[in-house]
């Protein structure tokens, strides 16, 4: 019989790797009392201690991808429970961000990143899981009759974000200069983006108790995305000072969270206030700063990203 061992054998990247959940247990939104940064740091420690053995198994991730969540969601329990406008708006923003994977895939695939078969295998499953996550968020908005109005209005024109506004032609041309190092840049910005959206899901749960389970579901799904990106980004950054340099530029020029360059300024301002405003929000932004600073060669840009998050 064909077993997953056959696939594992082909992969050649599975030796003794513990399930990601074992390495990254406990990113829950309740109970721990730790901020995102504290949780991640403790997990980084665990990761380092098992680094020699722990290699993210992309094929196992692909094989066990999570599809539609509608059957597991307690939609009946949410029926008629109209959400607070801010919670509904944040839920809508997160749904749209999760849905924008094809735009992101384009920006990654027009560069040398498309040549890295392990990364593209990850991205194929990542896009699939994000699709169904967006679907789950949409289902909650529908069930609670809380669909926020379509956001419209002028986009933000920040000079520092010019690079993020590049179309595929310029992106492809410029990325040719970076060559294969661009992969390290992409996984690093993807990692920072995951930290930011994780903070947003925590904020969502805090804003509306009844959204706790959907926020937890999102965090669970993202656990493996984070595990892959974290491992890959740390390795590529540690291996190359050029990747570090390119990543420093990328992190200061990116519009956070990734995808927001396409969104109206008013919506971006709302996201920043809602997720990173107030004392709790500033703590989250501080936690992200510390996480970035702990990545090889990125200490100098960590405060820049923090300042951009909590404007």
């Amino acid at each position: 019989m064909s077993t997953s061992d056959d696939v594992a054998q082909r992969a050649g990247d599975t030796t003794g790797s513990p399930a990601p959940s074992a390495v990254h247990a406990g990113s829950g939104i309740s109970g721990s009392g730790l901020t995102l940064g504290e949780l991640e740091r403790s997990r980084l420690g665990e990761l380092e201690s098992t680094e020699a053995a722990a290699v993210f198994d992309v094929r196992e991730f692909a094989r066990t991808a999570r599809g539609s969540h509608r059957a597991e969601l307690d939609l009946a329990g949410l029926e008629g429970a109209r959400l607070e406008p801010d919670a509904a708006r944040l839920l809508g923003v997160l749904r749209d961000l999760e849905r924008s994977t094809m735009q992101r895939m384009r920006n990654l695939l027009v560069t040398a990143t498309h040549k890295d078969a392990r990364v593209t295998a990850f991205l194929s499953t990542w896009a699939f899981e994000k699709f169904w996550l967006a679907d789950a968020l949409d289902a909650v908005l529908d069930t609670t009759a809380s669909q926020p109005p379509v956001e419209d209005g002028p986009k933000r024109r920040d000079r520092r974000e010019r690079a993020a506004r590049r179309g595929p032609v310029r992106r492809a041309v410029l990325a040719n200069f970076a060559g294969a190092d661009i992969v390290g840049v992409h996984v690093t910005s993807g990692l920072v983006d995951e930290w930011i959206t994780q903070a947003a899901y925590r904020r969502l749960a805090a804003a509306a108790e009844k959204l706790g389970s959907i926020a937890q579901l999102a965090l669970d799904v993202k656990e493996r995305h984070l595990a892959f990106l974290q491992e890959d980004a740390r390795r590529r950054l540690a291996d190359s000072t050029r990747v570090q340099k390119l990543a420093r530029t990328e992190l200061t020029q990116q519009a956070w969270p990734i995808g927001s360059i396409e969104r109206p300024d008013a919506e971006r301002g709302f996201f920043e206030r809602m997720v990173f405003g107030g004392a709790a929000g500033r703590r989250e932004a501080g936690g992200i700063r510390e996480l970035i600073a702990a990545l090889p060669g990125l200490a100098a840009v960590a405060p820049v990203v923090e300042a951009r998050l909590a404007r």
Binding site: A62, T125, F128, P168
Partner: peptide
Amino acid sequence: TVCYLRDMLTTPSHKEPEVGTFMTMWNR
């Protein structure tokens, strides 16, 4: 397939929800 997906994504079609959905599933 990702190489072909990349070419498709350089057209404006992926912004249409139906095409974006298809590409996600088809690629996988």
